[in-house]
Amino acid sequence: MERQHKNKQKRLSGRFKNSNLAQAWLVLVLALVFGTALAAVQVNLGHVIEANKINETLAQIPQLVFGADAARKMDAGNVPVEIIPGTMAIQKDGRNAYYSLFRVDRDGALAGWVIKARGQGYADTIELLIGLDAQAKTITGLFILEQKETPGLGNKIGTVRWRSQFVNRATDRPLVVVKRGSGRPDAIDAVTGATISSRSVTRIVNRTIGDLRGKLMPEKIQFSERRSK
């Protein structure tokens, strides 16, 4: 009789010891403590990280408007380039689009525009910068800010070789992705094995230019006060 009672007690305490909660309490406590600690780190470093990302964007801008070589020479020769960030709201075909863009001035005169655009890629959102000349008639540069396309295939959209195809294209008609070398003035060669990634970038470029062409006038844009180099 007594033995049975003891066994029962043992079973009960054993059950508590083996229950999920008793086993998992430390994991839960650790997760809570560390989660809080990480939030604190994030709060302290967040603004530095944000500033780094903005600087990365700003560093790309001169070469997107003037080309890599010219930008390097201008940097060495201390030509005053002013980058003024702004935002612009567009209403087209019943949808609202919202762009952040940069007006690029050289010696105090408008030299070109850089527009930040994003859209769906093959794997994830692709974020890019498009450089346009002062009248928005030709593309002067393209830079991929963020992409998570397939390594070895789709991520080649970030290479200078592929991106440079867009330079000097006219903006009056949409660009078309082709398999290879048709020589047409509006054709972009797809990255081999990554047609979807190539189409995604081209679609983002076409849509952005379609939205903004003819509307890039300084008086329509809200410029922020902040000015940099």
Binding site: L38, V41, Q42, L45, V48, I49, N52, K53, N55, E56
Partner: peptide, 11 residues
């Protein structure tokens, strides 16, 4: 933590 610190100081 390493990831955040690197993003902040070695971007």
């Amino acid at each position: 933590v390493v990831e955040l610190v690197m993003q902040a100081f070695a971007y």
